[in-house]
Amino acid sequence: MTDTASLPADWSYRSRATRLAIWTGWLALVALFVWCWQVMTETTIWAFVGDAPRQAADIGGRMVPPEWGYLPELMLPLWDTLNIATLGTLGGVVMAVPVALLAARNTTPSVTILRPIALFIIVASRSINSLIWALLLVTIIGPGLLAGIIAIALRSIGFIGKLFYEAIEETDPKQIEAIQATGAGPAEVLTYGVVPQVMPALWGISVFRWDINIRESTILGLVGAGGIGLKLNASMAVLAWDQVTVILLLILGTVIVSEWISALIRRAII
């Protein structure tokens, strides 16, 4: 064995330059954080912040005991909420499928024009939360369920479209080639070669999105787009915190049930 004295006594995983770069990176992040913090809190009124624990205790105190007598009145809005989520998801799927077909590299009829447009639709829909869509739609077509349904549908296009076009791109090209080799036309290649391969994915994605949409549709009422959120808004406007507790617990229950159903369906498909 070599004498240990002849070997270097320090060892470091990274070279000096990389270590320096990493440290500068961290330092820059800290500096950026401090600067952001200062800009952000410029307008903060610290008296309110200091007062927060008292406020929290106050609200907390008023939230219990929950006003259970309010529950029956919530059933119709809850039904509306479920409809917003379900019909919205349906509308989203119907619009997302063609967008995904245009966006997937192996099914798009034009890579240079239609594909970028489809991708932009997907990004635009994904970037804008359903609550913002609802806010817009309420001012355009008036408050109500329809605005909520369209808002959910518009937001779902991006989500479903993105996952679905990725699923289409992951199809087995051999199966598609085999259908092409029989002399089938493009529409037949789609229905026999592509559709059977991606159907389970489409079901899975749709159910997954439905579950998220249930969650999102509970708050659309805050901007007037119908459902249980309307009740939440009304109760908060009159500071009826004991009613708010009931609504929140109902929302929580609905979300848990819908998550369970969605997991069940997805397991059945796969």
Partner: peptide, 30 residues
């Protein structure tokens, strides 16, 4: 013309999620 040329593939290239009958009938797609 492709209808006149039958092709048999290395890894079968059946549409896995369709029934056997649909796979055979897919030979008539043209």
């Amino acid at each position: 013309q492709r209808r006149r040329i039958g092709m048999i593939f290395q890894e079968y290239a059946l549409v896995e999620r369709l029934t056997v009958m649909e796979n055979v009938l897919s030979g008539r797609l043209g």
